[in-house]
């Protein structure tokens, strides 16, 4: 008797919960799920006169161009390694900055610093590429003209030296995104019950210990979620960072070629939506598999923090 009442109540609660979900569900179905059916384009040879629905099926042919090239290894390596560095360094810097900002609290200086740190995020990649160019241009750049030249050093052809760009790209990425990412962690740190910190302090913890034993553990769930989401996109790269910032300089391809730039460079000319679609599907599937695996690992270790 009681169990059926409980069941009924549980069902009613589930229905109420569904009402919360309803508006979002409608949107996701229209905006994401129905258009997702469009992946079939990846398996078609698009013929505009026939329309996308009636074009011929060609199996996996659209995928060939991704693998049948000596660039396949380079672009896969670059995409994965950069993303790994971005995930690790990005998280470390963002948390570091968030802790420092919270330390300064509500002071005017904290607000000014935070504004300054988020400023780069407000710029589009096109603009950032101009900024980078202003520093690195061989003939007019600040580094060559105002730093190396007065110091009596010979100029560096920055856009022709792949080696430097491994660091330049990482720096630019951190420069743009650290302030922005730190906001996520700041909200979490600010949300930490101040009584917990107080208790730690009374127990004699110093600042570093407080961070180590109170703040970081509380940030763990957020870090896990952010990382899992990043892993889902690990086969994607920020097109602006890898294409526009290096000014599409050919000499830099060994360190700037990623899946997205390769697809863009190849398809700009061919304008083939079938092949573009195939590349997107490939990136999604790899990300999907990786994220399922890592979620599984998280679930094993710490079920509360798993993404789903």
């Amino acid at each position: 008797m009681t169990s059926s009442v409980q069941k009924k109540r549980a069902r009613k609660k589930n229905i109420t919960y569904m009402l919360f979900l309803l508006p979002g569900l409608v949107y996701l179905v229209i905006n994401n799920y129905i258009p997702m059916m469009g992946v079939f384009i990846a398996f078609k040879n698009i013929d505009y006169a026939k329309g996308i629905f009636k074009s011929d099926w060609i199996g996996l042919q659209n995928f060939r161009f991704l693998f049948k090239t000596r660039d396949a290894l380079i672009m896969t390596r670059n995409t994965l390694l950069y993303n790994l560095v971005f995930i690790v360094a990005g998280t470390v810097f963002a948390i570091f900055v968030a802790i420092l900002l919270c330390e300064l609290g509500e002071k005017l200086s904290a607000r000014i610093f935070q504004s300054a740190l988020i400023l780069p995020y407000l710029l589009s990649w096109v603009i950032i590429s101009y900024i980078v160019f202003a520093f690195l241009s061989s003939d007019t750049g600040y580094l060559n003209k105002a730093v190396l030249e007065p110091a009596g050093k010979s100029f560096v052809n920055w856009y022709g030296e792949p080696f430097y760009w491994i660091f330049i790209l990482i720096f630019v990425f951190l420069w743009k995104s650290t302030g922005y990412q730190s906001i996520v962690y700041m909200a979490n740190i600010a949300g930490i019950d101040s009584s917990i910190k107080e208790a730690a302090r009374i127990d004699g913890a110093n600042k570093l210990q407080e961070i180590r034993y109170v703040v970081l553990p509380l940030l763990k769930p957020t870090v896990v979620v952010m990382t899992l989401m990043a892993i889902g996109r690990i086969f994607y790269s920020d097109f602006g960072l890898f294409f526009q910032v290096p000014m599409d300089s050919g000499a830099l391809y060994p360190v700037t070629q990623t899946v997205d730039t390769y697809v863009y460079r190849g398809l700009m000319k061919l304008n083939d939506i079938g092949m573009a679609s195939a590349a997107g599907l490939y990136q999604s599937v790899v990300g999907f598999v990786l994220v399922l695996l890592s979620n599984l690992a998280v679930k094993r270790a710490d079920p509360d923090n798993a993404l789903f």
């Binding site: 589930n14 889902g232 997107g280 999907f288 993404l307």
Partner: peptide, 28 residues
Amino acid sequence: DFKYRNFFSFFVFFTMLFSGGIVPSYMM
């Protein structure tokens, strides 16, 4: 206590991973 929380978490997360490209969205 929401029975389908995992399912719907996945439902929303999934949209981050897959997309059908611009053509279907544009048609929609």
